[in-house]
Amino acid sequence: MARKKNITAEKIIDLYMSALLTDENIPKTVYAFAHANNFEENDFYKYFSNFDVLEKHIFSLFCENTLALLVENEDYTHYAPKDKLLSFYFTFFEMLNANRSYVYLKLAQNKNKLEALKLLSKLRSTFLKYIESEIYTHSVDLKNKTLNSLNKKGANETAWAQLLFTIQFWLEDTSPNFEKTDIFIEKSVQVSFDLKEIKPLESVLDFAKFLWKEKTMST
């Protein structure tokens, strides 16, 4: 049987996700995976050192593809930071919707939550670079290098926690077309910017009511 030629990183990802969703098990070895898909084992290592690295790359790729789509919209560059973040969230979760079976398998069905969180480490780096360069570009100058660094770190951690919280909500969302996740995104992003501008009460209460309603309806 002739070997496949010019295997790409994107093709390896497609084959891996397909294998995982079909068999529900990680291939035992890179050799077995390459042999089953008719390409050379060494071609895998041109892009990924192991399956763990590959899986982390997949989650980061969801973010990278989201950002690539955003910059294709000429109007996006003129958006205010809040509208940019909303655009990111809606586009990112469209990406996740298109790959929900894989994401659900790796995150929601993974009993080892710490292991699941580690899969998002490269996504975290990609997302925080976006936050720093596009969203929180203007911060309050606290006239102290250490305090400014802590303030920036706090803003980053809050942004990351917000994304994780939204992913968790989406994983548990059973509404048609995940409509409640869209509402969650709108309200949570509004709250995050209102808190930053120190005018939170109305949007925080509105968001709290939404979460309370969701919790009471699901019990």
Rank of each mutant, 00 (worst) to 15 (best):
154 G>D: 10
128 L>P: 08
135 I>D: 06
166 T>D: 01
98 A>R: 01
108 A>E: 09
160 W>N: 06
110 N>L: 00
166 T>W: 01
99 N>H: 09
179 E>F: 09
141 D>R: 04
129 K>S: 12
113 K>S: 06
114 L>N: 13
120 L>G: 12
176 P>N: 00
156 N>P: 10
183 I>M: 07
123 L>H: 11
169 F>R: 01
102 Y>S: 08
103 V>K: 04
151 N>R: 11
105 L>N: 09
95 M>S: 13
106 K>I: 05
161 A>C: 13
140 V>D: 06
138 H>C: 11
172 E>V: 02
119 L>C: 06
120 L>D: 12
161 A>I: 11
168 Q>V: 00
120 L>M: 14
90 F>G: 03
133 S>T: 12
106 K>H: 04
159 A>C: 11
119 L>G: 07
149 S>H: 14
126 T>Y: 05
157 E>T: 13
97 N>E: 06
168 Q>D: 07
126 T>R: 10
130 Y>C: 04
131 I>Q: 03
173 D>K: 00
131 I>P: 01
133 S>W: 06
100 R>L: 06
103 V>C: 13
169 F>P: 00
114 L>W: 11
115 E>Q: 07
181 T>L: 00
154 G>Y: 15
155 A>F: 12
169 F>N: 01
123 L>A: 15
167 I>M: 10
102 Y>H: 11
136 Y>P: 05
92 F>K: 03
131 I>K: 00
104 Y>D: 15
93 F>R: 02
172 E>I: 03
155 A>W: 09
109 Q>D: 08
106 K>S: 12
144 N>G: 08
165 F>N: 08
97 N>H: 00
135 I>V: 10
159 A>S: 12
162 Q>H: 12
155 A>V: 15
134 E>C: 11
96 L>G: 02
181 T>A: 00
118 K>Y: 14
108 A>R: 10
148 N>R: 02
151 N>S: 13
123 L>Q: 14
119 L>E: 08
181 T>E: 00
183 I>C: 05
159 A>V: 09
105 L>S: 11
171 L>G: 00
180 K>R: 08
157 E>K: 15
153 K>S: 15
142 L>A: 05
164 L>F: 05
130 Y>E: 05
102 Y>L: 15
179 E>Q: 12
167 I>R: 03
96 L>I: 07
158 T>I: 15
154 G>M: 13
98 A>K: 03
101 S>P: 04
116 A>P: 09
148 N>C: 07
150 L>N: 12
178 F>V: 00
178 F>H: 06
138 H>W: 11
117 L>W: 07
174 T>F: 07
135 I>H: 08
107 L>W: 03
155 A>P: 03
138 H>Y: 13
92 F>M: 03
151 N>Y: 14
169 F>H: 01
128 L>G: 05
169 F>G: 01
122 K>M: 15
126 T>D: 11
128 L>Y: 06
117 L>G: 13
139 S>Y: 14
141 D>S: 01
137 T>M: 12
107 L>T: 02
94 E>F: 07
136 Y>T: 13
96 L>T: 02
107 L>F: 09
156 N>T: 10
103 V>N: 05
101 S>I: 02
144 N>V: 03
90 F>C: 00
116 A>E: 04
183 I>Q: 10
175 S>W: 02
147 L>Y: 07
173 D>L: 00
119 L>N: 12
114 L>Q: 11
93 F>G: 01
101 S>F: 07
180 K>I: 04
103 V>H: 04
125 S>W: 02
95 M>T: 07
157 E>S: 14
